[in-house]
Design a protein around this nucleic acid. Sequence first.
DNA 1: CAGGGATACGACTACCTGCG
DNA 2: CGCAGGTAGTCGTATCCCTG
Length: 304
Amino acid sequence: MQSSLQSKKKKMKKSSRDMESNLPEHDNRPCFYKIIQVNHKASNSLIIPPHFVTTHLPKRMPSEAVLKGPSGDCWNITVCQQKGNTIMQHGWQQFYQDHSLGDNEFLLFRHNGNMCFDVQIFYKSGCERKIVSITRTHRDSIVEIKEEEIDFSKIGETEPQVQTSGKGKRKSTAEKNSPSSSRKQSRPPAARKSKGNLSKAAEDFTSKFPHFKHCLTRANVEKPFLLAIPCSFVKANLPQARREFTFSTSKQKSWKVTYIYSEINKVFSKGWRGFAIDNKLKMGDSCVFELVAPQKMRVHIFPH
DNA sequence: CAGGGATACGACTACCTGCG
DNA sequence: CGCAGGTAGTCGTATCCCTG
């Protein structure tokens, strides 16, 4: 008991060290923040806090500002005066859309001088967004992929190699436990054991985009049609809030799929059913889910 | 280094709600 | 009423990490 407490303390110390290491050192640049409220106004323009304008911006303010996103790409924004406020207008909408800003997300604007701002984006949980925009780089990459246009059906024809899980060095709990576990018996044996059965093509798949691989289970392709998302992927790349994603495959078609975030489950639900049916997904098929943009998922299907 | 406890995560079921 | 969507909870498995 005590040992587990100690390990927890160690983990906490480690995570706090990690957090500290991410903090900018002695950043004295003037800054202001904005919390995004999803509405028509927020997506069209952004008011720069008047106090920030008077204290940090030149009186003869240029009519253009530059926002440098977390990706390093820049957006040119028109700055104008409206009803006594200084607002970012033309160009802001593009920045807003490219970053798919969501409700209660937090933006930190650091002024580098010359109306140039570094922008950091944080989820409402307080964690910084790392994957943030369809930047030029990303757009280029998407184009690259389109140009390559891999023929997935051909890849699927390659002999699917069933990967022996072999991860656990020790005896699994299942082996240790008696086979008469009531819960275990209540489930069809085929419903499990899907893990580690990714096809060779799926195993070999690599991408410059964040992605996760998944071998489809019964629950993915039959009622209740849910697709669980690995927590590690959620933590690293997805918002801690419900979002509508656009799923696409190599066949120039897209589906709207709702991503549901809760303390217990992180799943794709609404819309996934349609996607699974339209693509004739079956238990045992391997899929790679590639996050090519904040709310755009490209799905590579490798038939079993 | 092996064994075992603790824990995180994935898979699944059950149940509720809303809508046609 | 049936179906689809959404949520909460349970259980099994994999993995981490401590101990001997």
